[in-house]
Design a protein around this nucleic acid. Sequence first.
DNA 1: CGTAGACCCTGCGCGC
DNA 2: TGCGCGCAGGGTCTAC
Length: 284
Amino acid sequence: MPELPEVEVVRRTLAPHLSGETVRRVEVRAERLREPLNEAVLNRDAAGRRIAGVRRRAKYLLVDLEPPTAAEAPTTLVLHLGMSGRLTVREAAGGQPPAPLPHEHLVVHLASGRVLSFCDPRRFGQAFTLPAADLDADPHFSHLGVEPLSDDFDGAHLRRAAAGRRGPVKPFLMDATVVVGVGNIYASEALFVAGIHPKRSVKRISAARWDRLARAVRQVLEDALAQGGTTLNDFADGDGNAGYFQVSLSVYGREGEPCPRCGQPVRRVVQAGRSTFYCAGCQT
DNA sequence: CGTAGACCCTGCGCGC
DNA sequence: TGCGCGCAGGGTCTAC
């Protein structure tokens, strides 16, 4: 479900509901996710703490938790939606916590009686805690590359990252050590906008093309963010991914349909086990 | 070293 | 109608 724009939309809709709340307790309903959920550790690091805010790094959501006493250190509740995760704030009903949802693996009970609910049918998501100071050094984060919407991301960055590497550009663009947050949808979309063939070797891309690609990545993500922001504004109230498919896509998922620019049928190929969509006329 | 492929898990839509 | 197959937006590990 989520790529970077969607995760950012979730962050923006959750943050006002969560900031200032206090975590009462964390309930693990199903611990068997990609990394097992540990209810005892989650409670040790989160229960009784006030939520200072919600940040994002790559596709991870970071819930900042204040120390309950000056002797303790800030912690962070890290959440990843995987392929099918949904985070919603749910209201208490008649003084009772809301009834369990299907695939609701984690429930963070808040002092107001509301809960932060994590549902994830495919169980590729993650939830764990860390001392806030250890985030950057943690193996989940230490290898991550630049944020695509930051000033550090441009054509020169891509060109430097590609030096000494081989292979096609599309999987390269999805390599989180190069740039984070570019998932399977927006990798295809950005290459279309930039006019670059997804199979083109990273060794055969000019500086001008790297510039164009970096601009395309930024544009595609920002456009999706703008559209997601307007169509997903009730996300936190439990309406999951309504509006997701309203984000206009040029080639992704459109095999056989006419290219919006030249009319040739959109093609699909599989690269590194993932579908890639492109126009053979517009992308070289 | 870097890259390609398998794998984690469940649900859905399609063709037969 | 029922069933099997392929496919799905992420990330990590292993084998080459």
